[in-house]
Design a binder for these strands. Structure first.
Lengths: 214, 214, 214, 214
DNA sequence: TATGAATGAGATTTCATTCAT
DNA sequence: AATGAATGAAATCTCATTCAT
């Protein structure tokens, strides 16, 4: 039988609850900010927009975030972390490395589609807002780039892919992903192909290029 | 016999000269603006920054441009026009269509490298600043996209390329170009490959993909 | 049993109190603006003048008024409303219609004397500042004019006054009032006659004209 | 036989011609300014408006007038002088002093009708623009006022008019004239009575007041 | 003398941030 | 902890005036 204290919680329990509440509040603000930043862009969004979307007062906002920049930083930072976590390194000795790669692409694409607004923002407007944000983006894209470079070099070493200028080609591949994503994240298009079709077409193009099968 | 003065200009010459001067001064402001917008971004750049960079007074600026928005619009519009003009449609029946395509890429890449700051700005920050600018960008990228789609479909029809989902693949190709450009426009990198290497690597990757030659 | 707290206000009382405070502060700004606009004129008065006179900061001003124009509009509109409310239609069948008329003049004159600055401003400088303000003035003077026209025609019908060109004479009467007011509102005159003397002299002149009693 | 020098004019003749030209130019600018100031008001009229209306360049304007204020001052000053010149003192011992007075009113009204724009401007917006202008207006209206006061006192002394509070009544009479003028100077009215009717109605009202003939 | 491009002080307005309640 | 009124630095834009040609 579990005894639940009635009158008061243990000291650290209380602090934990307070912390949890605080985190929940922060999360609520971050979610609202993601929405408004994503829809209007960083510079066209005022603190007023954020607090109205979050349903809090101006003063409260500054209890949770030191500044507009910091809010944006946290938003980008959190998303970047989740994105990085979602990427799995492909083991070229696995049974089906290409299947793994496809899986990886699907995975990341899925996460990004779940955060359309923020993704669009990161792809097109986040740069130049704040130095710390720029650094995050640089790191994020740098990581992506290095992973692709690694994959290309591994692939070449194992004979799975051709030898290419892996720096340039990695950049190109990252660009493919970014652009395709961006285009298919724009909401008011009716002609959006399925995620599946996008992933497959990208994959095919990347592997085989445009030349006809010999 | 009519005597035409040699030293002075013809009657309408006066207005032409004034106009020329005016255009030169506009150009001076546009160039300064390109520099500061490109380095600091649109929102982090004030009119004060622009006029200081251009070496003119506040009032003079408004003699040449109606507003900060209009300045930015002209900057983007002018660049978009030059960019569009620099693109030549590839004739698939020519002796070497692939050479033509490579030439085209070289051409555009060259123009963009000559306007690093502005290109970076257009690629990463110009969206959401101004509706008219958004429209220009949409048209510019739309045109690029349509050209690539056309090339893909022509290529497939003539047996030069495989049949692919031309919409998605065109988007991917545009993305490749954008990203590679952007990365190699960032100034403080010492390891920039030559333009030539970039063009060739992009080209190879696009045509052959990553799979090894069978 | 519901306990109603005694010291604090009822639930909607909070919002009412806030609103009251807001109205008080608006009133404070309006009063300061009346002073500076009245002394310096609309165009010679800057927002800086207003906020210094009101003892508030720049930002606070825009918390209460959307623009300098709107401030002026509210000032004029509020005054016009109070002025119109202060005018009572004279019933020609009353015991002493002429006494009523005199009372009316006294009433309006009193209100205007209590708002010297604003009155001077309206009489001499308010026109052409803002279209909405022009409309208010047109309506205000139009109303005054129509009332005088009505009084003249009623008076003639009841045999209390002569038949005159009521349009022109009404305009003249309105002009008398305006000018006399204006002259006796100029502050630095020491020789101001009493309100009473002004009202009586105007009244006498209007009724009897200048010709000697026959 | 008059000898006209062919090659060059006498020294003072040349300067006279130059002066005349200068005066003509000034007059042209003043006329244009009267038009634009009268239509848009002092503060809504820019130097640009004036020089466009006058068909001269910006620099030329400042060759003829030291400032916008000075231009306005000259405009008002010149008009005030002509107005004062047009007023003739009524001699109460003349055969028909009332006829003289009516003649006077007609005269001034005629001059004002010939300068509608400027008159409207002086009546409603000129005050508070410039101290020197304010002084002119004060003097102008002061003179008018004194003349009317004099007429009233003369009239009373000679038994032509009743004894009234001549200060207040004079102010009232000036106000009548101003207001009637203003109303009938507003251009877009179709129902304007004839000048004649206006003068007569004013005159009748002023002399007899509103009470029915006993 | 005439020109009109250039000037810069100053106006209005915005908005991220602070602070008394 | 929460509120929202108050703040003021800084932004954009105007326009009377100057000055080199």
């Amino acid at each position: 039988m579990t005894v639940v204290p009635v009158t008061s919680e243990p000291l650290d329990g209380r602090s934990t609850r307070a912390e949890r509440l605080r985190r929940v509040r922060r999360e609520k603000i971050l979610k609202a900010a993601e929405r408004v930043f994503g829809q209007e862009g960083y510079h066209n969004t005022s603190i007023t927009d954020v607090i109205e979307a979050a349903g809090i007062s101006r003063g409260t906002f500054y209890l949770y975030f030191a500044s507009k920049d910091e809010l944006f930083y946290e938003l980008v930072d959190g998303f970047a972390r989740r994105l990085i976590d979602s990427i799995r390194v492909v083991d070229p000795t696995s049974a089906n490395p290409t299947v793994d790669m496809l899986e990886n692409i699907r995975h990341v694409v899925g996460l990004l589609f779940d955060h359309r607004d923020l993704t669009k923002l990161l792809l097109k407007q986040a740069q130049g807002v704040d130095e710390k944000v720029d650094l995050i983006l640089k790191n994020l894209y740098g990581l992506l780039h290095e992973m692709v470079v690694g994959a290309l070099e591994n692939g070449a070493q194992w004979g799975l892919t051709r030898r290419v200028n892996s720096q340039i080609v990695a950049t190109a591949i990252v660009g493919c992903i970014k652009e395709v994503l961006y285009q298919y994240l724009v909401e008011d298009r009716e002609d959006l192909p399925e995620k599946e079709a996008v992933a497959v077409a990208l994959f095919e193009f990347g592997l085989r290029g445009l030349l006809p099968n010999s």
